[in-house]
Amino acid sequence: MKNSLKLLPAACFVVIVFLGSMMCGRYPIGLEDILTFLSVDHSVVRFQEPAVNVLYHIRLPRILLALLVGASLSMSGTLFQGMFRNPLVSPDILGVTSGCCFGAALGILHPGTSPLLIQLLAFSFGILAVILTYTIASLSRGQRVVMLVLAGSVISAFFFAALSFLKYIADPYEQLPAIVFWIMGGFHRASWDMVRTLLFLLVPCMVFLILTSWRVNVLSLGDEEAASLGVNVKLLRPVLIVVATLMTSCCVSVSGTVSWVGLVIPHIARLTAGVNHDTSMPMSMLLGSGFILLVDDLARTVTASEIPISILTSAIGAPFFAYLLIKEGQKSAWR
């Protein structure tokens, strides 16, 4: 009960940003119109009206995509920081992002390039990167958690080298800018098809992470204590890694890299909702989705052309985090 109260302001924040996001943009739409639009039965909506058209076909899918990506990355970040007992960990740690970027670049260079091919290759290479990381860690005899993090940085370095090579051989007038722009990320590719696929894939993962979040507390005590407390670490950790990898890979393959979210939001969630993953996990979901939506609103409205999302997430996230570290440092979750 007390915990749900902590989440209430964050939920209100998301709803307000959601309504604000539907209002803002090149075509001005008032709050009243939006509330009628949301309350009306969609089967009878007349799509001729330009306002409804803009809302339904352009703004809504993009808003939903931003919410989904923000929530997924933040939740994976919270899970990984807890599971790997490390405050510097983000969802990229096992090499997903670098694998996705390499896959996307491969798709852009492919003669038969198409948005779908780019997404599929990005997604597949993201998954492949984590499989490689996990294999390397399994082959070594060292401490499992440390080995996973180290193997992840090995795989990341490898895929970034491969990506650099692709950039080097890419056509500098068409392909290279496309690769660079893709990697910097954004939600301009949003469509209802994409949102439907992502809803189908990501919502079950999110539900799973919320349901298992209490157990992440036990896992965060370290392998030995978790096993002593009756957790089958050898089963639970791979399952959670698969879920988080699936989520991150889905997100990065549709929106490119969205830096800082998976690192910073879990910290902010912990500072506001406490260290217990039972509350910090749903808090990450709310704060992450609201934050990314807010930043995406800026990305599409501040200038005439679109600003890549990762530039804004870093530019806003980094100073805000620095402020939190200084102001809230004394009650920090990491001491």
Binding site: G82, R85, N86, P87, N217, S220, L221, G222, E224, E225, S228, G274, V275, N276, A333, W334, R335
Partner: peptide
């Protein structure tokens, strides 16, 4: 019931 020597817990749980 296992009681470790010195726990180096990362998260300051209640």
């Amino acid at each position: 019931g296992f009681v470790p020597q010195k726990h180096n817990h990362v998260f300051p749980y209640r």
